[in-house]
């Protein structure tokens, strides 16, 4: 049996990018409080936050996965597809449960960490099939 090492794609530059985006999110959140609610500047600032987050997710993701060979990419794409489907299902299902009285979950906070953890678990489980 030969162990598949799907996490060798990890790019340490992603940590630097994550710290940069975190600093931007904190600074922009502080700046946002000084602006009038519903102002154009505040909307633009929010768009900047969303853009930084999207860049943080997609640029390292693409860079990391394209470094792998075809089996590694196959494993990651499968894990991403399963994770995305599960997360969408979980968020929708929880919305129904919230209406039934369960506590509210702010998915803008929990979606990204939940996605990352589920993706990592998915990669480990799917990689086992090829060992």
């Amino acid at each position: 049996m030969s162990p598949v090492r799907p996490f060798r794609c990890f790019d340490s530059r992603a940590i630097v990018a994550a710290l940069g985006v975190a600093a931007w999110l904190i600074a922009s959140a502080w700046l946002s409080r000084t602006l009038a609610p519903d102002s154009t500047a505040r909307v633009l600032l929010a768009l900047g936050q969303a853009g930084a987050l999207a860049a943080l997710v997609f640029v390292p993701l693409r860079r990391s996965i394209t470094r792998l060979d075809e089996l590694g990419r196959h494993i990651h794409y499968q894990a991403l597809a399963v994770t995305a489907a599960l997360l969408v299902t979980a968020i929708t299902a929880w919305a129904f449960l919230e209406r039934a009285g369960l506590p509210h979950i702010d998915w803008s906070i929990y979606a990204a960490p939940a996605f990352t953890v589920a993706w990592a678990v998915g990669v480990v489980l799917i990689a086992r099939r090829y060992e």
Binding site: S2, V4, R5, D69, E70, L71, G72, H74, Y130, E131
Partner: peptide, 17 residues
């Protein structure tokens, strides 16, 4: 130009290239 794990998965017929 692939990993050893990929060659192993092909040889054991767990992965079709």
């Amino acid at each position: 130009g692939v990993s050893r794990q990929t060659v192993n998965a092909i040889e054991t017929e767990k992965y079709d290239p």
